[in-house]
Amino acid sequence: MNEPVSKLQEILDAGQFAVTGEIGPPKGTNVEPALHEAQQYLEGRVAAVNVTDIQTAVMRLGSMAVCHLLLDRGVEPVFQMVCRDRNRLALESDLLSAYTLGIRNVLALTGDHVAMGDHREAKCVFDLDSVGLLEAMARLEAGTDLGRDAKGNPNQLDGVPKFFKGCCVTPCADEVEPQIIKLEKKATAGAQFVQTQAVYDPAAFEKFMNQIQHVKVPVLVGIVLLKSAGMAKYMNRSVPGVQVPDAIVQRLTDAPKEDRAKVSVEIAAELIRAMKPMCQGAHLMTLGWDHCVPDIIQQAELA
């Protein structure tokens, strides 16, 4: 087996249950609060922290810069990269840059369409898709790139990066077969770990995991903290491939306002406890409620 290039890879290689967190860079230069939250609530509790890349096409500070700042503070980042905003030249170049800054975990994503965000008149790129981005990483690791020299031979790199390459899947998509086929392709392209879209239905997740047994890539189940019944309903209405069961919505509805955060944490922890035996880790997306991570981890009996 290859020598692990990151703590996250080391944990997954060792067959231990890995927990990752997630932060979103600010809209502006005020990066301190996000870094502080990561350091205070995530460091030492999670293996690595994902940094979103212009999430939902809402313009923000860059993922690479925040990943680098996290590294400076001793927090291992997962550099999320979407295909929406950069062509293959820029993606490959940023991968080399990220590597030189010490970034090792990279999550390849398609990226939300610009129509979802706050720059709706922007031009979408999508030169590569998520499979192509994984291929680009594998190519760089092999010492070449996606281009050709004047004679048509692969370009040779002067100094070669090595990444721990991740991808995403939606286990509870209304149509799961195409998701599985694409996951197979991502694994073929070199994906070494999977972080899933939010899952709220352990039975559906178990079924999904049984269907992808042949894909030999560790899976971290996605847990999005439900902050309110309204948010759960919104997700059911508007987030593709996410279905919050009625029972969970009801629990959030019934919770008195002062107990809502407590109930949110309980739900997340229960979901992790239920799905832990089915997968290799959990990816916690707390959407700014990073202060809940210690409680989730404790109640999920992961500490």
């Binding site: 295909c83 398609t110 369409h113 898709d129 899947v169 939606t170 195409p178 998701q179 593709p240 491939g241």
Partner: peptide, 13 residues
């Protein structure tokens, strides 16, 4: 909408 070539993204609904 994204001219993808290896199948649907997670935005299919």
């Amino acid at each position: 909408s994204k001219s993808l070539i290896n199948g649907a993204c997670g935005g299919t609904n």
